[in-house]
């Protein structure tokens, strides 16, 4: 059984209307950040969610944690529908920006003690402080960090604090929303290794949101590709990288610079801009940028299983002779 399951989940945002808009009877523009997404996260796995900025990754993360309520569909945790953040703290989140996600006016110790106190009311102050030291040690930070304020720490150290904070309630799922995209490359590797170690040692389930294909390949077991609020493809990481089945996935891979690429093989990255997210699109959402688009793409596409464990939202994906299905053998 899946530990966390999103069933037909949607979340839209409305642009606020001015008095003039209301007077003229204009309806508010609707941005479908996440549109009818089905996704299951299995116990112990690391599931990556990739896509360009604005594709709804972060909204998906917030829905998974319960920070935002879906306006359609349900989020199931251990088979039960969620309403708001889990009261026992079993789903925790690490935010993208380690510079703004820690309250600048509280020491690290106070920040962590607050969480410990929230979930273990019975502990004395000394026991809480011991718990804080242990939480810091778990992410490789010295105990002295507790007395410091966030501004005295580097980005990497702050993100470790964020992870330590998220681990305090002993969660079963860690949702990491672009946890390394604000960090230097060398520090990124440390944080990725930390997450990998946590996954291996504690068996924690990780939902890893990223736009960095390399990082996802290194860390994740399975990957979901999102585009304009919809999941376009889900596959085990090796399968996805060796044989991308959706043209968008193939284009994303080709957008990654690769020093080992063979001479003479051409890259075919996704070109053009994302369409207006407010526009209503009936058919395939990627059709406007797809090199293989045909008339039939104007019809709604469904997620269908093409290979074991692989789901693709493209009617062409079943056809194995298509040029993009061979990954890097493009001519």
């Amino acid at each position: 059984m899946s530990l966390l399951e999103l069933k037909d989940v949607s979340r839209s945002f409305w642009t606020p209307r001015s008095l003039v808009d209301i007077a003229l009877g204009r309806s508010p523009a609707v941005l479908r950040a996440v549109h009818r997404v089905d996704l299951a996260v299995a116990e112990g796995e690391t599931l990556g969610i990739v896509g360009e900025s604005g594709c709804g990754k972060s909204t998906l993360a917030r829905l998974a944690v319960g920070l935002q309520a879906p306006d359609g569909g349900t989020v199931l945790f251990e088979g039960r529908p969620m309403s708001g953040p889990d009261p026992a703290g079993r789903i925790q989140m690490v935010f993208q920006d380690p510079y703004s996600s820690l309250n600048p006016r509280m020491t690290i110790g106070a920040l962590l003690e607050e969480v410990v106190g929230r979930y273990h009311r019975e502990l004395s102050r000394r026991e809480r402080q011991a718990e804080v030291r242990e939480a810091l040690a778990r992410v490789g930070l010295p105990a002295e960090t507790a007395a410091k304020y966030p501004h005295a720490l580097s980005g990497g150290q702050r993100q470790r604090v964020s992870i330590a904070r998220a681990l305090c309630p002993r969660p079963r799922i860690l949702v990491a929303d672009e946890p390394v995209s604000a960090l230097d490359a060398s520090v990124q590797a440390q944080i990725i290794n930390l997450l990998q170690r946590l996954s291996r040692e504690t068996g924690i389930t990780i939902l890893f949101i990223s736009h960095d294909m390399q990082v996802v390949r290194h860390l994740c077991d399975r990957v979901a590709v999102m585009y304009l609020g919809k999941v376009m493809e889900v596959a085990p990481v090796e399968a996805l990288f060796d044989h991308p089945r959706h043209p968008y996935t193939a284009g994303l891979m080709d957008a990654v610079p690769d020093v080992t690429r063979r001479r003479g093989t051409a890259r075919q990255p996704v070109s053009g801009e994302m369409p207006d997210p407010y526009a209503e699109i009936r058919g395939c959402r990627f059709a406007s940028r797809c090199r293989f688009a045909e008339a039939r793409c104007a019809e709604p596409q469904r997620l269908t299983e093409t290979a074991p464990g692989g789901l693709v939202r493209c009617w062409k994906a079943a056809d194995a002779t298509l040029p993009f299905s061979g990954g890097k053998t493009l001519t």
């Binding site: 944690v65 953040p85 889990d86 009261p87 935010f95 703004s100 996600s101 964020s162 904070r165 998220a166």
Partner: peptide, 11 residues
């Protein structure tokens, strides 16, 4: 963002 963090903590 840190207000989101505080909410995510379960406060």
């Amino acid at each position: 963002d840190y207000v989101d963090t505080a909410r995510a903590k379960g406060l």
